[in-house]
Design a protein around this nucleic acid. Sequence first.
DNA 1: GATATTTACGGAAACGTTTCCGTGAATTTG
DNA 2: CAAATTCACGGAAACGTTTCCGTAAATATC
Lengths: 338, 338
Amino acid sequence: MNKIDIKYLAKELNLAISTVSRALRDSHEISAATKAKVFALAEQLNYEPNPNASGLRGQKTKMIAVVIPDMVNDFFSLVISGIEKITQSKGYHILLYFTHGDHELEVSFIKTLASGRVDGVLLSMSSENNNRHYLGELEKKGIPLVMFDRVCDTLQHGVKVTSDNYESAIIATRHLVDAGCKKIAYLQVPKNISVGKVRMQGYLDALKKHSFQTAPLVLESTNDNEETFEALKQMLLREKPDGIFASIEKLAVICYRVCEKIRLKIPEDIKVISFSNLQTASLLNPSLTTITQPAFDIGETAANELFNLINKKDKSLAVERNVVLKSRLVKGRSTARY
Amino acid sequence: MNKIDIKYLAKELNLAISTVSRALRDSHEISAATKAKVFALAEQLNYEPNPNASGLRGQKTKMIAVVIPDMVNDFFSLVISGIEKITQSKGYHILLYFTHGDHELEVSFIKTLASGRVDGVLLSMSSENNNRHYLGELEKKGIPLVMFDRVCDTLQHGVKVTSDNYESAIIATRHLVDAGCKKIAYLQVPKNISVGKVRMQGYLDALKKHSFQTAPLVLESTNDNEETFEALKQMLLREKPDGIFASIEKLAVICYRVCEKIRLKIPEDIKVISFSNLQTASLLNPSLTTITQPAFDIGETAANELFNLINKKDKSLAVERNVVLKSRLVKGRSTARY
DNA sequence: GATATTTACGGAAACGTTTCCGTGAATTTG
DNA sequence: CAAATTCACGGAAACGTTTCCGTAAATATC
């Protein structure tokens, strides 16, 4: 029942505390014989260093924070899996935070994280139109930050990992055009987040370049699914588009339900494509054509970028770096020519 | 650029360190006037207490660990969301670990967690047939443990949160019988984990009681999806069951793919039911009948149970407690009578 | 009005590490 | 072989809190 700490090991081995500490960290100023003895006893007694003590002394916690909106779709699950692969290999730990799209909560998380709880932060922002002054707190304390997917486009410096949303949106829109669509609607994400804006810009530009459609047709959704369901139903009945481009997975799912409700057949009456990482997209009725982001890869890349910052000697965070990964088009029956 | 710690606040206010500390913790032995001053300055300077220091001193970290196999399906995402709701409200932090089904990794996680990194552990085991001696490390250090879903059935003491797997398996099997199935196959999870065993027992007992089927038909799957795909294909071709009961979601997905491959129509040729938390189950082709576990609720409950242990005065962990939550049957077209 | 209690605060120890500084002994150097 | 360096380790400070113990003044008790 005795707590086994370095002091206990030292007493047991008739060594000084400092010697034991150095031995455990494999210091060169300790003889091989002594090291062996220390390792053996540590192993035998199942010694584990106290992370608070080393964290307090050395100012490094071996922990990183992952701050994301939530985990309602497969995208963030995959990102986290990618992050975990890296942290695992580096012996780091993951602290997980959900902002639930609440900007205030995000600010409060970041502020507490700036107190030395973690060595670095991975962030996918809940809303990007707010002020971003709070991110400065991290910088002030020298805690590296890497943003991914939902990044802050007005922030110049910093490392950002995203996917090619603009190009993918063009590809998606053109895919609908090629499938024969004459009137394509775009379902916009609730919040005014940058990925939504960029994707919509791709849709708009692609319409101009590749389609005969005169005016864009955009439905702004809300966070209330029922509300969005109704709005979409009205829009489909009124405007009768023959193609739907959903900017996020949830909207495609709602779209499927609306089509079922008002007896619109996919892909015969209307074709659907969506940004999505749904692993069962190919099993849907009909199988959903998706733009699939490299979610796992985004996680891995963001984590690697963060560790680069953490291990950097000089803490000049003035680096600016944009890593853009490629999404891919996965064709399903929802956009098939019939 | 000055680090703002308690010492700095104290100097600034001409107070002792101890006074500032007590004021911040709203101690009764500090006058209202002094508290106000301290709070004001702390607010103004954005003071955040150093978690390592308080953790080291007070032996409480305000963190809990969540150890799960992985996040490849929606079940664990939902569980974590439930956990997060509780930790969030208690001001706690979540450390997330994936064992990837590797028992050795799980042991090593638990061992390092026993060093005082967290105040409690939530665990869903990767494999339950191995020795469980390592769990004693936590108990020895007085760190509470709550197991959920994949619990250790041979461990007598401890708190466990599960769902009614046995009863649900009976309901699922009977549902297939009621749908007209004469030959029902059971797809067993790869590892010999307790949920799998319990569910299979429900299947076996239900067969005896509710069906005319003479012999059970069980396919043991492996972690290799391709291998399982082939095995299932052979089994379907050879045995020609007219009902499939998948013990986990992944097996249902594989089943769908196999049926597509060998042109078996669901539900006309074969009916399928599965344990699953897939949020798009109703959108599959055909919509999948599921036994849906109360995943979010499991997370909430497990977290609440853990906090009960953490806040318990006497650390006698001898409590034994089994919380069982109800799953529900969600009917889809995959088991429809035609 | 002398003693007991409460109030409000200060000083210092303690939590378990890491690391700076020091120091004899052993080894190398010129 | 004296001086310089290296080797292998010990002592103690420091990280930022929390809390035990002490204490002077203020208030309460009989």
